[in-house]
Design a protein around this nucleic acid. Sequence first.
RNA 1: GCCCCUGUAGCUCAGUGGAUAGAGCAUCGGUUUCCUAAACCGUGUGCGGCAGUUCGAUUCUGCCCAGGGGCGCCA
Length: 534
Amino acid sequence: MVRSQILEAVRDALQTLGVAEVPEAVTVERPGNPDHGDWSTNASLVCAKSLKKNPRQLGEELMAILVEAELPHVEKLEIAGPGFINFTLSPSWVHDVLRTVVAEGIENYARLHVGDGLEVNLEFVSSNPTGPLHAGGGRWGVFGDSLARIMERCGYIPHKEFYVNDRGTQTVLFGQSLVARRDGIPVPAGGYEGEYVTEWAAEMPATADPTEWGIKRALQEVEESLASMHVHFDTWSRENALVESGAVENTLIALRQSGYVYEKDDAVWLATTEFGDDKDRVLIKSDGDYTYLLPDVAYHRDKYNRGDLVIDILGADHHGYVPRMRAALLALGHEADEYEAIIGQNVSLMRGGEEVKLSKRTGTMIAVDELIDDLGPDVTRFAYLLQSIDTAQTIDIDVWKAQAGENPVFYVQYAHARIHAIGREAAKRNIVLGDLAQTDLSGLVDPNEVAVLRDLHELPEILAGAARDRAPHRITTWVRGLAGNFHSFYAHCPILRSDVDPDLQQARLWLTEATRIGLAIGLDLLGVNAPEEM
RNA sequence: GCCCCUGUAGCUCAGUGGAUAGAGCAUCGGUUUCCUAAACCGUGUGCGGCAGUUCGAUUCUGCCCAGGGGCGCCA
């Protein structure tokens, strides 16, 4: 679109002036200050040195070429500040944006191909099947699901997986805890003391295997919680299944063949320090049982059957785990760029002005269900996706509940519902939306109208950045901005009022239609409902 | 001690190698003879500190300070 046309012209001009390879640092950006035009390039600042010219002088030469090029929509060019070239465009450029958005629609606008069909395996949540999903796990669920949506729209083929550690110490302890609660005896040391254990123990049939039953019960709970936030997985993988299929033993053989396995103190070790880990790691304990690591390596190996790039989304408390997994995969011959770990910072919850501790074992935890019950799935998702995954998050339940009227989710949803309300009102007034091709958009010059269209123009770029940087919250930020500019437009620019010129009315109706498309795309990427009325 | 994340407005958080750093909440004050006021408009002492790289650093690098998380033959 416009921006890339300008950038191309700038790069061409630089080459004409003798810049053999135009640096990546040469960019075209939206200046913060409207006095600096619609677009601005730093080209002369970046390239002045290599051409041994001062930036203003180079700017003059660039400008002469750019004027010659007669770029579409460009009305004025000027040099400002230390040597920026500012482009002022006629409003017609945003009108092209409107036509593009409407023509491509929800399905195709901001549908990118940067992913080039790469199959990406995303593993997230993967909590122990020893209790309900806690609010922290909910963050990874919503983040992973939204990232998958974003990557899919960018041309990747995402595959969402949940890994179930249905084997090992924790699940056994959990089973024992259930039995203890059922029989009224003390929970074993390090066992699970949450209230849910007592509740579930009461449901447990006498004949059931406690560990097996407990895992099933917990998984059912977790799956329902995730589903209630519209988080679904393509594959649920079981640790036990990997043991039974021989995948774990095969992985051990493969690791041995790599030459990085050795025995010491009756245990089997992997020399992960050869790949940058702090210390070597045990694969098989001296008691003969696997550590967590070995089956997990087998699992990661298995995941490459369902993706060429494997991404783990982990909580901050697991970040120390990443170097050993990376080392194991490198030992098995995978390339460094085939594995990636996203570390999410922790979530804490506030209620009644106090922090609610999240621990399955001590029992003072808040399950995601409680959050969803209090806030609903849309608010819960939006709250989770409001900020960067790199930031420790505190969700104050009281605030999100109390704010119900002026909450960012409703603010955005209301913008969408408002557009539908306009449509309903238009029908009531027998105002019919005409053919866009026949519509004169030249009346859309109000700053509020232009602001909405500029937002829409930015979506593909924002989306690409969100996918590249694994940052769904950029979509949240963008969609809030679009909703805000739309509300301003609505307040300042009457649409259906009888004193509005018919041509302008049609143009504004098309503007609302383009906005509807943008909001629907943004909300869908977040997995938040776009209501037609509220 | 080592590793990861964070430090931006009273609070919760966005944001950018550039020319005047934003939003919501909170405060105070405005807006409705025809489109939903869940909205709009106005109101601000802020980039933890010190160096370095750069034409230019809040953004990149190093160190320091502060907060969170991790450093098991647990997961």
